[in-house]
Design a protein around this nucleic acid. Structure first.
Length: 419
RNA sequence: GGGGGAAUGUCCCGAGCGGCAAAGGGGGCGGACUGUAAAUCCGCUGGCUAUGCCUUCGCAGGUUCGAGUCCUGCUUCCCCCA
């Protein structure tokens, strides 16, 4: 980032101040467009899964700030590119998604965007096109003639991502080599359709975005711009968005609100300030105050981070409920009825069910073998009492207030209720 | 087309004289310590109706009391020559 540059637009001021920016092709240019209220920007999203996860949140937030500062955000669904399958994840035979799957994923993903952006027909309202709209209509010969001639292979070969692969003798498939052409074409097409001037994305997208700018110029678009965000890792170097249980999904049906809240609550100390800036709307003054908290006090900042981030996605009411459940569970050690509950046939419980199987049944551990191991290391508890006998049975006698509380480790609790 | 390598515990990397549920890492999980953090230390890291049974080393056959290990064929990937 150019050290001397001082933005005049709200958009760049916010992004710079909050740490969203890694590189920008032309700060002054973007700044001027934003200042004039003419900035329309897009970010591409895969629709390989029915939900985005935390890893995409920085991108979503950039679109959100764009809208809040007077620009028009364009989240682009990669419905067309998804059909090809992104080859850069080098694990070979990635399954091809059916068109129905892709369509379903798009619908599901759009729900998330509507939490962060306002869609509509207005000047700053977001629109969500799908690159399948133009990519699938392409004819190979026409594409080569109209678009392909603008790509310089010499130039493509000189790009870092390509150069690296060639130097290491790693295979670079033709389809992968073409992927950037399709993405570049998206940019040109979005300019044509929406007057989109800026493409944003993660820092790994820089090369692809710049290729798009280049193509735009050759195809007669005005100057286009690139802006990338830093690749996010936690302070200890782990990738964001992955936990033991899998990805931190944004859709509530794939990750319960409580778990989402917990994800943020468990942020490392060193990340609190950075995350508050990136993942909440809190004013900077407030954030500066929170990140100055030291020692155990920083837990207050983490709770605020969790509640704010959750509220943005799932609504304030749900966020408060998650916060309250956590408070009861951790600070009062009391049984909160809002913990996830799994039902069991009343008769089954009356007959007695093995502890190990009970833990497997509610999904806290994957197998009885794992349950057995956890008993040995003291990781399982029933009604807060450590399980020491793996042969123990759970019966109606274990019901406390109509349920049995099963805990795995300190943080994972599930209630077992007879039905 | 010719020659030479490689594929191992369904997260990854990676050892493996014919007796192997298979060394060692990383990652992950649990425990201790804390603050629901980090760091550190300890334990665990195929499945089950479990003093036993079943399934794992690219795929399919074969040799053998016994195969990840030896043989044959196949698949995929890499390297060298053409």
């Amino acid at each position: 980032m150019s050290a001397s540059f001082v933005p005049k637009s709200d958009f760049l001021s916010v992004l710079m101040e909050r740490g969203y920016i890694h590189q920008c092709s032309d700060f002054e240019g973007v700044d001027a467009k934003a200042k004039a209220g003419e900035l329309i920007a897009y970010i591409g999203f895969d629709c390989t899964a029915s939900s985005l996860h935390v890893g995409s949140l920085v991108q979503i937030m950039m679109l959100r700030w764009l809208q809040k500062t007077g620009g028009k955000p364009v989240p682009l669904m990669g419905g067309g590119t998804t059909r090809v399958g992104d080859p850069s994840g080098k694990d070979e035979s990635r399954r091809m998604l059916s068109l129905d799957d892709i369509e379903a994923n798009k619908t599901s993903i759009k729900q998330v965007f509507s939490k962060f952006l306002t869609f509509g027909e207005g000047r700053t309202d977001a629109v969500m096109p799908d690159n399948a709209e133009w990519l699938t209509a392409l004819n190979y010969i026409d594409f080569l003639r109209d678009v392909g001639r603008h790509f310089s292979v010499n130039r493509m070969l000189s790009m870092d991502s390509v150069k690296m692969r060639l130097e290491r003798d790693q295979e670079l498939s033709f389809i992968e080599f073409n992927y950037m052409c399709l993405q570049a074409y998206d940019f040109a097409e979005l300019y044509r359709r929406y007057g989109c001037l800026l493409q944003m994305g993660g820092s790994d997208q820089w090369g692809n975005i710049v290729t798009g700018i280049d193509l735009g110029r050759r195809m007669g678009a005005p100057q286009l711009y690139a802006l990338t965000s830093p690749l996010l890792t936690t302070a200890s170097g782990a990738k964001m968005g992955k936990t033991a249980a899998g990805a931190v999904w944004l859709n509530a049906d794939m990750l319960p609100v409580y778990d989402y809240w917990q994800y943020w609550r468990n942020t490392e100390d060193a990340d609190v300030g950075r995350f508050l800036k990136l993942f909440t709307d809190l004013p900077m003054d407030e954030i500066r105050r929170l990140e100055a908290l030291a020692g155990a006090e920083i837990n207050e900042a983490k709770k605020i981070l969790a509640t704010e981030a959750t509220a943005m996605l799932h609504g304030r009411e749900q966020a408060m409920a998650a916060s309250e459940t956590a408070r009861k569970t951790f600070e009062e050690g009391e049984l909160a009825t809002s913990l996830p509950t799994v039902e069991i046939a009343a008769g089954e419980l009356a007959d007695g069910i093995g502890v190990l199987n009970a833990f497997v049944k509610v999904g806290l551990v994957p197998s009885t073998g794992e349950a057995r191991r956890q008993v040995k290391s003291g990781g399982l508890r029933v009604n807060d009492a450590v399980v020491s006998d793996e042969r123990a049975q759970l019966t109606n006698a274990d019901l406390t207030g109509g349920v049995i509380k099963l805990s795995f480790g300190k943080k994972k609790h599930i209630l077992l209720a007879p039905r």
